[in-house]
């Protein structure tokens, strides 16, 4: 087999699709890492408070599950994320499209948009609490803010970078506005928008945990914070794994969605 077959000009867009072997192969590195972890713990290179063993983490997870804490926390965190993220994404797409499309909107809203985007949410928490109280609304609003801006920006950039030729083709074919949108603008911007959404997801997760640390009455963030306070690093790790796992699954779903939406790209 030639070298290029291994490290060559592969276009992952074509070759990297979830065939069975592909999916299986993606487990190699996580498992290798797990193995390394187990071995290092066995060899006791680090004291157990610094590097907790997988066994401790598993035990901790089991305890949290059986006491019901884990399920409650998951339910609460996911609910907040779902609501805040979906609202933020929808608003973001709308705003981004508006900003890209309409000169007037850009003039009036751009400065405020750019300013608010950079305002550190966590610094203005007292303000938010005063306006929204300390209940679920506060947390959802904060996640909404965190999601809104990345999605809006990605949408705006996506719409703005549609190659001129595409639109000219549309005009040449005398397509109506709606057809132009459906056949040219939408498919051309979907990749950028989806990338933006995926970034926003990571952002929202981070803000979610931050919020749950500040007003830590419930949620995954609270489990991690309390774990830290009690120096129960195994509990912190449970939270780390869980958030990683959930985020990974969500990301996967987004990828599948993207693949489905872009299937026309792979033809021809």
């Amino acid at each position: 087999m030639s070298k290029s077959a291994v490290i060559g000009w592969h276009w992952p867009a074509i070759t990297f699709n979830p065939r069975y072997t592909g999916w299986l192969a993606s487990w190699i590195s996580p498992l290798a890492l797990l193995l390394a972890w187990v071995l290092v713990c066995r060899a006791q290179w680090f004291p157990e408070q610094i590097l907790v063993s997988p066994q401790d983490v598993a035990d901790s997870a089991r305890d949290l599950w059986s006491s019901g804490d884990l399920q409650d926390a998951l339910r609460v965190s996911l609910y907040r994320l779902a609501l805040g993220f979906s609202l933020g994404s929808l608003l973001g797409i709308a705003a981004g499209a508006l900003l890209a499309h309409s000169e007037t909107a850009r003039i009036y809203f751009s400065p405020t948009f750019n300013a608010l985007r950079q305002v550190p949410t966590l610094a203005l928490t007292p303000l938010f609490i005063l306006i929204f109280g300390i209940g679920e609304t506060l947390k959802i609003v904060i996640i909404l803010k965190a999601t809104f801006f990345p999605v809006a920006i990605a949408t705006r950039e996506g719409v703005r970078s549609i190659p001129r030729q595409y639109l000219e083709v549309g005009e040449a074919y005398c397509l109506s506005s709606w057809q132009q949108f459906r056949r040219i603008i939408f498919p051309a911007t979907v990749p950028a928008v989806l990338t933006g959404i995926r970034i926003a997801l990571g952002r929202s997760w981070m803000i979610l945990v931050a919020v749950e640390l500040l007003a830590a009455d419930s949620g995954i963030g609270q489990i991690m914070e309390m774990g830290r306070q009690m120096l129960r690093i195994d509990q912190v790790m449970v939270g780390v794994f869980l958030t990683g796992l959930i985020g990974f699954s969500l990301d996967r779903s987004l990828r599948l969605l993207e693949r489905w939406l872009l299937r026309w790209r792979h033809q021809g």
Partner: peptide, 24 residues
């Protein structure tokens, strides 16, 4: 492709963990 297969899962997993959660 090898790098992709090896790095991608780790990247996707760790990326989803909120930075504040990694603080401890």
């Amino acid at each position: 492709r090898i790098a992709l297969t090896l790095i991608n899962p780790l990247y996707q997993g760790i990326r989803q963990v909120p930075l504040l959660g990694l603080t401890p």
